[in-house]
Nucleic acid binder design. Sequence first.
DNA 1: ATCGCTTTGTGCTAAAATCCACAATTAAAT
DNA 2: ATTTAATTGTGGATTTTAGCACAAAGCGAT
Lengths: 224, 224
Amino acid sequence: MNYQELPVEEIIADKTSIPDIVIGRLPVYLRTLKLLHGHGQEVTSSQELGDLLGISSAQIRKDLSHFGEFGKQGTGYDIIYLCRQLEEILKVDGIWPVVLVGAGYLGHALTSYNGFEQRGFRIIGVFDNDPKKIGEDLGHVIVQPSSEIAEVVQKYSCQIAIIAAPTDYAQEVANTLIAAGIQSILCYAPITLTVPKHIRVEYIDPVIHFQHMTFYLEKKCLDE
Amino acid sequence: MNYQELPVEEIIADKTSIPDIVIGRLPVYLRTLKLLHGHGQEVTSSQELGDLLGISSAQIRKDLSHFGEFGKQGTGYDIIYLCRQLEEILKVDGIWPVVLVGAGYLGHALTSYNGFEQRGFRIIGVFDNDPKKIGEDLGHVIVQPSSEIAEVVQKYSCQIAIIAAPTDYAQEVANTLIAAGIQSILCYAPITLTVPKHIRVEYIDPVIHFQHMTFYLEKKCLDE
DNA sequence: ATCGCTTTGTGCTAAAATCCACAATTAAAT
DNA sequence: ATTTAATTGTGGATTTTAGCACAAAGCGAT
């Protein structure tokens, strides 16, 4: 087999052979490269990228080496070329449909955010169970009842969902999404979901970050 | 020195001797313990906790062992007692004041979120530069101009800030916050901030999670 | 009192992640 | 053409993290 002629996704023989922690850094590299590109810069180095990100240049080079040789000795990396390669590796050279469950303040914020599309994602459906919210127009989508999740997920072959529902409903929502065919969930509810092991769940909970920070702070609270 | 008589924070001889990754898991343990407590459960085990979180029981025991012996052989852990201990270790047994910069959709969602207080945090000031937003009443706080950040931070001895401002202003906002005395920043802008090394920054960017997920998905995008 | 089951805390082993350091290569300057 | 400086990709050492497995201890049943 001639690897040179295959697209990046075919070169990666075995996804599981690449550490997940490496995959997790690639989006950060991509984000930073796009920022540099936006500033008009055309070339960068592992050293510069590392300085910007607070990590070692060796780590960046080794991470990239899992996927190919993208740089040029003495010069560094062509930003546009490396962006394209990373986008292909991460499969974000297209637009992925995403469904969102929960049309509260957070759901509104997510729906209004206009930074998704340029990075590969579009919210194509918003669902809620509250009759007061159903029918509400959020710009380019209208809130639908949760009972229609399966239909929309299947219509768009959607694999990604966001849970922005109250904690008490999060597990139930996850079950519904998984039954509908969703493969990956980004969960904003402060709870660890129980899911089959082929389903990937990532979590966003600001309080987890705060509580991590306070360990290192000198204690000075209110109320005491 | 008799360690038995000292509060937890004094027992931890050297914060840097405990891996940061361990500290990062404690808030997740705490969150889960509180969930079990909410269900009326009084005792749990490292096994049960590990199953709920998808990690090994040994890891949980070893993590906790950095701080003391909180369990009882044959029985497990008293949930209330372990919660208290974790809260003390993480210093979230009081309320920390937090300032928020950015009163857009995200800022509104954060301000309206009522899950902060019971986990140790309170947004005591919201700032924005947009004259249209200044003066807006967000329930228990009113949007103030960014020029007042320093005054409020100092008045409350506030050490924690959230940046929910547009990407283009995030670095500038961070500089202002740090100059005002902020020690830890939770940044929602999709950018890596440049800060002095004694300042801790954590990031929340949903797209980073999405792009991490898509690596493992079968590619089926819109538009193609 | 003893047995059988459970669970902790931990010494040690294994695995994973990070980092050093250098040959090879490129580009620019002289 | 040669020198100098920069930068990559990577073998291998080092450091960090996770996991195994077991003695010690607690509890409940008989």
